[in-house]
Design a protein around this nucleic acid. Structure first.
Length: 444
RNA sequence: GGCGCCAUCGUCAAGUGGUUAAGACACCGCCCUUUCACGGCGGGUUCGUGGGUUCAAAUCCCGCUGGCGUCACCA
């Protein structure tokens, strides 16, 4: 049995689209699930599109997503070089061989001399695709395509065939946009007498616009690159997990997968042949699941840059409060801003039907609470909890009735990370008392 | 437009001739609750359409419609 070898062959654009990331992921998962190799090859044959440092960018992005190539520009390998612009002599040799054998011809234009592939005028070409079965296209539909451009660089349609064969790629996993050009590739394999690899053409990742229309995922839909998502504060693991399920079904109800589990469970049968719409809501949910199972320490570390103003001794505690109610790290600032700056006073917030509370009644509760808090000398969570519980019991009121106005006075926002005790602890004695007094004054 | 690919809840999707057509996200309702979140329970006319084939069709065939892709010295 031939060794399974897949490749990810991006052009260096300095941008990792979610669709590309998914293609890389599936190629990686398939290779690894079969004990095969995953190769990274840079297709930089378009000089106009070349972006500085893009190769490094691609490698870093794949590393962040834990998609590790066995061979590539950085790791090297038996089939180096893995950058197409460094393989020009090879392409030239094969292109000339085709000319010699009558399957290609030179063409002169103002640009210089290029080589074109000569397509059969009759007949049809069929190839097998794992997802779509046999696909047949009439040869008359095929254009005499450029193989070698006048600048000496090959086109994708040529370099891709040469390299996939030379690098012993067994399965070509790529987007559906290549289905129509695959017959041209197949013809090339046949001219050279090379074994034809197995094709797997993946359906595109779509996006949904505000007006409900569906189209290929692009900027208008919001974040579209792996890095955009990282910047928004999603964990790389969560992104990879979500993207894996966007077009692949594990045939079980499991949804949370580590990379290792993905490798173990992956199979081509679960791949979908119809397009999948990227759903930010589902990503949010999945991301939240990852945060919830993180340790407080890890979460605090991940959220480090958002915790800059939080005292060191409170960071881990705050992390424990926030990690269960966040779907992306970038939500943190709005969630904790009230700790340093009290939002504008809003009397409306002191009315809550469910807890039977009104502004008037709030004042009656806040006033004695201030006294109790002022008398607490050891400001620990346990101590606070004890004193407040006693206060509630003594008042004879429902817990919610007491807690609601205190929490509002302390945070001045409807939604807070944690309840009254937690907020008191985070705020510290001085700030807590000050805020309660401020509200009491406004309410009187 | 030619050619090609695709078509199950709003979204991801299971399903391979006989099911009450799973599950998840989102949504709605209820419960729990020191708010929110978490958690628990429950809810919703989902197989694009018209023809076949068959005792039986979401599943097979054809047409239609719709979406997407492709027709570069881009990849």
């Amino acid at each position: 049995m031939k060794k399974i070898r897949t490749r990810f062959a991006p052009s260096p654009t300095g941008y990792m689209h979610i669709g590309n990331l998914r293609t890389a992921l599936y190629a990686y998962l398939f290779a690894k699930s079969q004990g095969g190799d995953f190769i990274l090859r840079i297709e930089d044959t378009d000089r106009a599109r070349y972006v500085e440092d893009a190769v490094e960018f691609i490698e870093k992005t794949l590393a962040a997503a834990k998609i590790i190539p066995d061979e590539g520009p950085h790791q090297g390998g038996n089939f180096a070089p893995y950058v197409q612009s460094e393989r020009m002599e090879t392409y030239k040799k094969y292109a000339e061989q085709l000319v010699k054998e009558g399957h290609a011809y030179y063409e002169e234009s103002e640009n210089g001399v290029a080589i074109r592939q000569k397509m059969p005028e009759t007949g049809e070409t069929t190839f097998f695709d794992v997802l779509h079965g046999n696909i047949t296209i009439a040869n008359s539909e095929l254009e005499d395509q450029i193989l070698l451009k006048s600048d000496g660089l090959p086109t994708y349609n040529f370099a891709n065939v040469i390299d996939d064969h030379l690098m012993e790629i067994s399965h070509i996993i790529r987007g559906t946009e290549f289905i129509t050009s695959t017959p041209k590739h197949v013809l090339l394999y046949q001219y050279f007498g090379w074994e034809i690899p197995t094709f797997i053409h993946l359906a595109p990742v779509m996006g949904k616009s505000d007006d409900g229309t569906i189209s290929k995922l692009s900027k208008r839909h919001g974040a579209t690159s792996f890095n955009d998502l990282i910047d928004m504060g999603y964990l790389p693991e969560a992104i990879t997990n979500y993207v894996a399920l966007l077009g692949w079904n594990p045939k079980s109800n499991q949804e949370i997968f580590s990379m290792q589990e993905l490798i173990e469970k992956f199979s081509l049968e679960g791949l979908s042949k119809s397009p999948a719409v990227f759903d930010y809501d589902k990503l949010d949910w999945m991301s939240g699941e990852y945060f919830k199972v993180m340790s407080d320490e890890d979460f605090a570390k991940a959220a480090e840059k958002y915790f800059a103003e939080i005292p060191d001794d409170k960071k881990i505690y705050l992390a424990s409060l926030i990690k269960t109610r966040v779907s992306k790290l970038s939500e943190i600032p709005d969630m904790i801003k009230f700790l340093s700056v009290l939002p504008d006073f809003d009397i409306e917030l002191f009315t809550n039907k469910r807890n039977k509370i009104t502004p008037e009644k709030s004042a009656e509760i806040i006033s004695p609470a201030i006294e109790i808090l002022e008398n607490i000398s050891v400001w620990t969570f346990e101590n606070l909890h004890e004193k407040i519980s006693a206060f509630i019991e003594k008042s004879g009121q429902k817990t919610g009735t007491i807690m609601w106005p205190l929490r509002i006075a302390l945070a001045m926002q409807k939604v807070t990370p944690g309840g009254v005790t937690e907020i008191l602890y985070l705020l510290g004695k001085e700030k807590s008392v000050e805020r309660l007094k401020f509200s009491l004054e406004k309410l009187s």
